[in-house]
Amino acid sequence: MIELLLLTAIAVFVGWRLYTTLGSDSGSPDGRPRNQQPSSPATPASQPRENPAGLRPAFTGPAASGLETIHAADPSFNPKEFLTGARGAYEMLVKAFADGDRETLKRWLDTDVYEAWDAAIAEREKTGSEAPQLLRLRQSEIDAADLDEQGAARVTVRFEAELGIGDMTRGSEEYWTFMRDTGSDDPNWILDDVDTP
């Protein structure tokens, strides 16, 4: 009986120490709410979360100089996180194009790009031809980056994908340029240009 009481007391003491050291899920050890970052919106190529630790991302590859310039203007910019968002944007926008979802496209495309894609959708609807479906995104990499005098950052990503049209499968290689005004409070990037090799 004494051993049981002793073990219970030890367990309570250890639990109390863990609680005061690590804190509960709703606050820090001193009882104040934890400083939580708001979750990023589910947007195609949104600006990454702030970097509280002040860690500087690595800039490598052919676009390293441009990426570093963008980071200097916007310290929250992280190429790795940007590329993850760009992949999500590619998948979302290719699907929106295939579905003829003009509302989604208009939100995330620059005016010139939207007008070209809208015309292609209209032609497809007129002729009744099938839309290309994304089967697999094989590769993506940042190809170029720059910051203009007005503070507009542009990052070009090369995408290699496998598309299906009816029973046919074909490879696709495109260069998508995303743009964002680094002086704006809007964290989202828009698709500014699309090129092929």
Results as ranks from 00 to 15, higher is better:
1 M>P: 10
3 E>G: 05
5 L>E: 11
6 L>G: 06
8 T>Q: 07
10 I>Y: 05
13 F>I: 13
16 W>L: 14
19 Y>Q: 10
22 L>T: 03
23 G>E: 03
24 S>Q: 08
25 D>H: 10
26 S>H: 12
26 S>E: 12
29 P>K: 02
29 P>R: 03
30 D>N: 15
30 D>M: 07
32 R>L: 14
33 P>M: 07
34 R>N: 09
35 N>H: 10
35 N>D: 14
36 Q>V: 15
40 S>Q: 15
42 A>D: 15
43 T>P: 00
44 P>L: 08
45 A>P: 06
46 S>T: 15
48 P>S: 06
50 E>Y: 10
51 N>E: 13
52 P>M: 05
52 P>I: 08
54 G>H: 09
57 P>R: 04
58 A>Q: 11
60 T>I: 11
61 G>R: 06
64 A>T: 02
65 S>A: 14
66 G>N: 03
67 L>C: 02
68 E>T: 01
69 T>Q: 13
70 I>L: 03
73 A>K: 07
73 A>R: 12
74 D>A: 10
75 P>M: 06
75 P>A: 08
78 N>V: 11
84 T>L: 13
85 G>W: 05
87 R>H: 00
88 G>L: 01
89 A>V: 02
90 Y>Q: 03
91 E>M: 13
91 E>T: 14
92 M>K: 09
93 L>I: 06
94 V>P: 00
96 A>I: 03
97 F>E: 11
97 F>L: 04
98 A>F: 08
99 D>L: 08
100 G>F: 07
100 G>A: 04
100 G>L: 09
104 T>A: 10
105 L>G: 03
107 R>P: 00
108 W>A: 01
110 D>H: 15
112 D>C: 00
113 V>K: 05
114 Y>C: 02
116 A>I: 10
117 W>A: 12
118 D>I: 01
122 A>S: 11
122 A>Q: 08
122 A>C: 00
123 E>D: 15
124 R>Q: 11
125 E>M: 02
125 E>L: 11
129 S>D: 13
130 E>T: 13
131 A>Q: 04
132 P>Y: 03
133 Q>A: 12
133 Q>H: 10
134 L>K: 05
136 R>M: 14
138 R>V: 10
138 R>E: 14
143 D>V: 09
144 A>G: 02
144 A>Q: 13
148 D>N: 15
148 D>M: 09
148 D>I: 08
150 Q>M: 09
152 A>F: 14
153 A>C: 07
155 V>P: 01
155 V>Y: 01
155 V>M: 09
157 V>Q: 05
168 M>D: 15
168 M>N: 11
170 R>W: 00
171 G>V: 02
172 S>K: 03
172 S>L: 15
173 E>M: 11
174 E>S: 10
176 W>C: 06
180 R>E: 05
182 T>C: 05
183 G>S: 11
184 S>C: 07
185 D>N: 12
185 D>M: 09
185 D>I: 07
186 D>N: 14
187 P>T: 02
192 D>V: 00
192 D>H: 15
194 V>G: 05
195 D>R: 15
197 P>R: 06
197 P>S: 05
197 P>I: 04
